[in-house]
Every structure is written in C-alpha cells, then in structure tokens.
Amino acid sequence: MRKFFLFFPFVAFSILSVVLYVQIGKDANYMPSALIGQTVPEFTLVSLTDDELVSNKDLPNQPYLINFWGTWCAACHVEHPYLVQLARSGVVIVGVDYKDKKSLAEQWLNKKGDPYRYVLMDELGHFGVDMGITGAPETFVVDSQGVVVYRHQGEINAQNWPVIEGYLQ
C-alpha cells in the first residue's frame, strides 16, 4: 500500500504534463466575447456626420463590422488606412468613436479618409461597456440577422483579415 502511494506524485505530475502539453501554442490572450450568438445590445447614439439619432433599427441588413476607435488611440492610426482599403473593396463598416471629441474625430476623418457607413459618437463610453470592449481598436463581426459572430481585439491588418473575413460571409 505504501509503495502504491509513493507513485502518487509521479502520476499527478504526468497528468499535469498532459494538461500543459494541450495548452502549448494556444493564444492565452484570446478572450471570447460573451456577446457572440447574441444581437447587438440596444443603443441610441448621435451620428457624427448629420447629428441624427441612430438606434438598432438603423443598422445595416447585411453582414458588417462594428469598429471601435478613437483619435486618442495610437493603434487606430495604424489600423485606419487598412480600413479605408477594406471600405473601398465593399466591406460595410459602422464606426464607433469611443470616448472622443467630435471636433477631433471630424478632423481625423477629413484628413485620413472615411471608411465608415456612419460613425456613432460614444463620448461617454456607455455603448462600449455594453459591447464589453477592453480598449480600442476593437472590432465585431455582425451577420445579416444582426447577431454578433466574432470579436477581434487590436488592429485589423493584412495578416489577421482573412480570419475576420471568414466570419463576414
């Protein structure tokens, strides 16, 4: 019996090794969103371009992206040209200007080009909280039924676009 117990540490370690082995190579930073499989939370926000109120019913009826950005966000500067390129190729993007100022956002879009179908002003960040974002840029893929199917944290670029595009179909 005692002999049997002496093997216990070895067995426990073996199990642990298997667990560790399975984990290697997975992206530890990846966090699935709780919103996946659900519709976009309810909101009413002002549109940057025409000061009209926009709510859920105004969202596109085709697959699209919701992109959170801000003029204060360094990675958004890097991401922006790629979004402009995507918009040119026909991707529908709804922008959310997150915790930002209207004047700065207008300058930004005038200077760098506007890839967005329209831009919602989330000055207080309430919509961002509802969507569960942790920073900017952050992008959600929404299908034609208005259901969130994917969330991408960080900038979109040529490397990770194929994955995101896959969800957009």
Partner: peptide, 27 residues
Amino acid sequence: PTRGVFILGLLIVLIGGSLLLYAIRAA
C-alpha cells in the same frame, strides 16, 4: 510553441524522472 514543447520535455525528464526514481527507491 517550440520552446514550450522543449521546456515541457525538459520538465518531464527532470521532474518525471526524479519522481519515478523517488517512487522506486523511497520505499
């Protein structure tokens, strides 16, 4: 990932080996 696999192998040899030795000899 390659490094992860290598160091896990190292762990298995060093820790697994010594625990096995322990199980056999400590009796």
